[in-house]
Amino acid sequence: MGQARPTLTALAVSVLALLEERPMHPYEMFQLLLRRNEDLIVKLRPGSLYHTVARLADQELVRAEGVDREGNRPERTTYRITASGRDALRARLAEILRYPAREYPLFPVALSEAHNLPKEDVLGLVRERVAHLERDLADLDTMSDWARTHEVERRYWIVLPYLRATLSAELGWLTGFLDELACGALAWEEFDPRTGARLAGPEHPWAEDDPPERPPVPRRSAGAAP
């Protein structure tokens, strides 16, 4: 049996994609990712990036090519992607594009349990979220305008309209949610104004032994990484 292909994190994918362009050292990778606003889609920290490069080297997906020193700066090791790294990158990209993974973001957790907060608190908090998202939307528009003005090929910034579409969808849904909650169309928990304790109400309608049915999850092809 062949050796199992290593599962690449989001940051590892970004590192290999950079090295597919040309060899570079980790500090250059970090700065380039920041200039390209990759921190919008990847959790980017210098320590995590250096750790990721070291791990990729251990897995022989990249290899050290040389050490440079400029003035009094620390030595910087330049890395190059290997043939195995290129294969791993392409396989991981294909897998991510093919399968919609459950990524478990935090906001749906808070939204599903928001009924534990008084209505006025929820209204205020979600309105703050909307304001933050509107600023994020404006930032995405600025970046897209810059790319168009500088005639950057769309394949290099196609993620920006995707992020804008998902952000716009969330904003649209939240606006409707706020309208329903504010006008009373959406019934909400009631709380004692003195103690903050929730007043007695009906039990949760979904009993533990009778969950709503879900369609079966399609199986992945043989050999696909989890």
Rank of each mutant, 00 (worst) to 15 (best):
T175K: 14
Y50R: 12
L181H: 09
G172R: 08
S14D: 07
G196W: 04
R76L: 05
T82I: 15
D209C: 06
G47Y: 07
G176V: 14
T78K: 01
S48V: 06
H51L: 10
E75S: 14
G196A: 07
A169I: 07
D192H: 08
L19W: 08
R98M: 10
P193W: 01
H25D: 11
L181F: 08
Y99H: 08
S84R: 13
T175D: 14
P205R: 00
R80E: 08
T142K: 03
L93A: 07
D121I: 01
A10M: 01
A94C: 08
G124V: 10
H51F: 15
T175N: 15
H25T: 14
Q59F: 10
A222R: 12
N116L: 00
W146K: 03
L111H: 13
E120F: 13
P6E: 05
C183P: 05
L56I: 12
A169W: 06
P46T: 15
G85K: 09
E75Q: 10
E60I: 15
P6L: 00
P218E: 11
G2D: 07
M143A: 09
T142A: 13
L40C: 11
E21S: 09
R5E: 10
P193V: 07
D68H: 15
H51A: 04
V67A: 14
A131H: 06
K119D: 00
L123C: 13
Q3S: 01
E21W: 05
T195I: 15
L137I: 11
G196Y: 08
V53C: 10
K119W: 03
R36E: 01
F107Y: 09
E103R: 05
R36G: 05
P46D: 06
L32E: 08
